[in-house]
Amino acid sequence: MSARLSPLMSSPYVKTLGVRFDDHGDELTGILPYAETLVGNPLIPALHGGAIGAFMEITASAGLLAASRLAGLPKPIDVSVDYLRPVRPQDVYARAAITRQGSRVANVRVEAWQDRRGAPVAALHGHFLIKPED
């Protein structure tokens, strides 16, 4: 599975954010390691909503790449992010679930959490343009 993620892992922005994936059988967990540069508002203090959204978009792409052979990276068409709890200055985890995958478009849901998976800090759902390998 990890070979299928290599186009994503070689993305400069994915490297800049420091996102990595923990791959256990059919469970793929995205990890956004805490860094000071991820803080959005030091007064709350909370990680930047945009960084969390970006991390969940990357996790959605990884979920799609892991699930089937694609020619190139999935491209987001639209995403909607719900911010459920303040994202504290520590590591964030996320997992993607593919709700439906058609021949060109996939609908994906992602949940992100910190201390407890049952207490998500943010959720994303979105549509991605995909190109299955011939």
Partner: peptide, 17 residues
């Protein structure tokens, strides 16, 4: 901040942030 090194397009996450 590029998403896909082949197209050199900024990552969607940058636009999100």
């Amino acid at each position: 901040l590029v998403g896909d090194p082949e197209t050199r397009v900024l990552h969607g996450g940058v636009i999100t942030a």
